[in-house]
Design a binder for these strands. Structure first.
Length: 659
DNA sequence: TCTTACATAAACATAG
DNA sequence: GCTATGTTTATGTAAG
């Protein structure tokens, strides 16, 4: 993947960020002030939303133009203001529409992701306003939006929200660009009187972007006459997402220049030799140059390369274009973040409960994007200072969210007493997979229990068994945190191994090894649906929302896992219906492949299969599974559908008929 | 308030 | 005797 190879980073100027925040808040307030029909009945028509968003965009544009009038910033001045927060170029140049939260997490390291999202979160805190409602955030809760009673209604609303968001963004962008065209200037930030900088408040639609590029680049109009050979720009721009993806994102990474210089590029593309350019080029497609605002026709790649090197060499114009493009992309990201947060707030208000237990789940589109941000904000409650994100300070991965350890224990000064229960904890496999390097290098305690970590270590082993020393090594290898205080955590490991029945000691030829009895592990923490009326209630109310609250559904699924593993629960029919359900247990990904052919959910060999001496332990506070309520969860599970998670579900769910 | 899960500490036993 | 390993108990904390 191209973006993965991009290691360069751009620095986001603090003024830039502040400017965005400043302007965003201004634009929002201004937009809402202009809005006249905030719907207090809860029925917000798309027309109203669009209208208000347009006004908001207009207000923001006015602000922008006003600030532009105070003085234009040169590219150099923009470069001077460089901040320590670094975001990979590939990240910055990607439009939000083309990157999913998962991809974001894969591209960015947890600290980078955290820094990025903190920026967005800071912005969104100022944008926490219901679209079309001009009430202040404080009065948001008083706003009489419809109750969440009919679930189908809510589901439709959520869909409508997303559609409205897209429409609003497009309309807003068009309006803004129309204004910007009048005094066509670069989108670089402009410091205001308080030293903050202000940016163009909204992103632009592709068509407007194209026009802007032409203006900035000074592309002669004759070139316009040359194009459109079966490629109508208007039709191209009608698809904003694909257009953005193809035209906006990649160009910054390629500055293959005849003089051998490169501005910002991936090493892969850092070549002036044309031979390295294959038939595909991110800036070349459909026989024309995809450089923003260019669209020059090139018959073949060679001609295109020639054109690229001649017309888009490293000069002030190209540099300015890149810079503008950065700003454009940044604005798109900010805009998406704002709207996502707004959507999240709306869903929250509609009792979709994003503040419920927040296990990790596969994020889903807008809602999921917001949910990540939400988790981030939950980790640092309002009013509390966020932990430092500098490299020197321990950083918690983003997705830790509520499962992150208490701040008091971050430095290991004091014992970390508590972390979230496993059943609501981030799936350890995915967490570790994505934040592996983070935990290896950062002195941060993983938000998992010893038991889960031990289990993960064992299951990760090729033969699903580890000696105690190997478990030790795994801990120290995987987590920088466990490279100190060895006496403490090693004792804890031993304690857990002995205490929990799910860990089975097996006398092997090479000595004693520890294995995992997966059934016992699942039995360890049976769901307490009967004892959690809130969860049950929310579960019921959450039905039918599809991907609306992925975190919540993952929590549900997580809670159901033990039920599913219960002999009284699982049968063929239910297992089949549950194949569509995401199971977000803190599981190892390898567990998925470990479902035995005979249907056992035990990862790897069951202890009995080793044929050696097995020490059976008595689990403390042993819980019997025969009293678990199943009817409710059975119904719930049949209604839970999380797209894209079937594979994991299959892996995690026992297919064995355990009756 | 009670229960449960978890982390931590520590004592003790056993084997190499 | 030392160390690693394994077991058990006690205690405190957090959350439901």
């Amino acid at each position: 993947m191209m973006v993965e190879s991009a290691t360069e980073t751009i620095r986001t100027t603090p003024s830039n960020q502040n400017g965005v925040s400043s302007l965003s808040s201004q634009s929002d307030s201004g937009g809402r002030e202009g809005g006249s029909n905030g719907d207090t009945n809860g029925e917000i028509s798309p027309v109203d939303l669009l209208h208000l968003q347009q006004q908001q965009a207009l207000q923001a544009a006015r602000q922008f133009l006003l600030q532009q009038a105070t003085g234009l910033s040169s590219p150099s001045s923009n470069e001077v203001k460089q901040a320590p927060v670094q975001v990979p170029v590939s990240m910055a140049m990607m439009t939000p529409q083309m990157i999913t939260p998962q991809q974001m997490q894969q591209i960015l390291s947890p600290p980078q992701l955290q820094a990025l999202l903190q920026q967005q979160q800071a912005l969104m805190l100022q944008q926490f306003v219901w679209p079309g409602c001009k009430l202040s955030p404080l009065s948001l809760s008083l706003c009489n939006h419809p109750p969440p009673a009919p679930q189908q209604q809510l589901g439709n609303k959520q869909l409508a929200f997303q559609q409205q968001l897209i429409q609003m963004q497009q309309l807003q962008q068009q309006h803004l660009l129309n204004l910007q065209r009048q005094g066509l200037v670069s989108l670089t930030c402009q410091p205001d009187s308080q030293g903050r900088a202000s940016l163009a408040p909204a992103a632009m639609c592709p068509a407007d972007l194209q026009q802007l590029w032409k203006d900035v680049a000074g592309v002669p109009s004759t070139e316009d006459a040359m194009k459109h050979e079966g490629l109508d720009l208007s039709t191209t721009s009608s698809n904003s997402t694909s257009y953005s993806a193809s035209k906006v994102s990649p160009q910054i990474t390629h500055h293959s220049l005849p003089n051998g210089q490169s501005s910002i590029h991936t090493p892969k593309r850092d070549s002036s030799s044309h031979e390295e350019h294959t038939a595909t080029h991110p800036l070349y497609g459909h026989g024309e140059c995809k450089w923003p605002g260019c669209e020059a026709l090139c018959e073949d790649m060679g001609q295109f390369i020639k054109h690229l090197n001649s017309e888009h060499a490293l000069d002030d114009r190209s540099t300015a274009q890149c810079r503008v493009q950065m700003q454009v992309v940044q604005q798109l990201e900010i805009q998406l973040a704002k709207e996502s947060e707004r959507l999240q707030a709306m869903m929250t208000h509609l009792h979709m409960r994003p503040s419920e237990p927040k296990p990790f789940s596969q994020p889903l589109n807008l809602a999921s994007n917001a949910s990540i941000l939400k988790r981030e904000s939950d980790a640092y409650p309002e009013g509390l200072p966020h932990p430092p994100t500098s490299a020197a300070a321990p950083i918690t991965p983003l997705r830790q969210g509520p499962s992150v350890i208490s701040s008091s224990g971050l430095h290991g000064v004091g014992p970390i007493r508590r972390r979230n229960s496993d059943k609501f904890c981030t799936p350890i496999a995915s967490e570790l997979a994505q934040n592996c390097e983070f935990y290896k290098n950062a002195d941060v305690r993983p938000p998992f229990t010893y038991a889960s970590l031990i289990r993960h270590a064992i299951l990760e082993a090729p033969d699903r068994q580890l000696t105690l020393n190997e478990i030790y090594n795994w801990f120290t290898r995987m987590f920088a945190y466990f490279r100190r205080n060895t006496a403490t955590w090693k004792n804890a490991v031993r304690h857990n191994l002995s205490l929990h029945k799910c860990f089975v000691r097996v006398e092997n030829v090479k000595g004693a090894v520890w294995t995992v009895d997966e059934v016992e592990y699942q039995k360890r923490r049976p769901p307490k649906m009967t004892g959690s009326p809130t969860l049950v209630k929310n579960m019921i109310s959450g039905l039918g929302f599809g991907s609306l609250n992925a975190s919540y559904q993952a929590a549900l699924a997580e809670s159901s896992l033990s039920l599913l593993n219960s002999p009284t629960m699982v049968n063929t029919s239910t297992g089949g219906s549950l194949n569509m359900m995401h199971v977000g247990h803190d599981d190892v990904s390898s567990t998925v492949e470990q479902v035995n052919s005979n249907g056992s959910c035990s990862p790897g060999l069951s202890p009995q299969q080793y044929g050696h001496q097995v020490h059976v332990k008595e689990e403390p506070a042993e819980m019997e599974e025969d009293s678990r309520p199943v009817s409710l969860m059975a119904k719930v599970s049949q209604n839970l559908v999380l797209p894209g998670d079937e594979r994991e579900i299959e892996e995690d769910l026992p297919t064995e008929d355990l009756e």
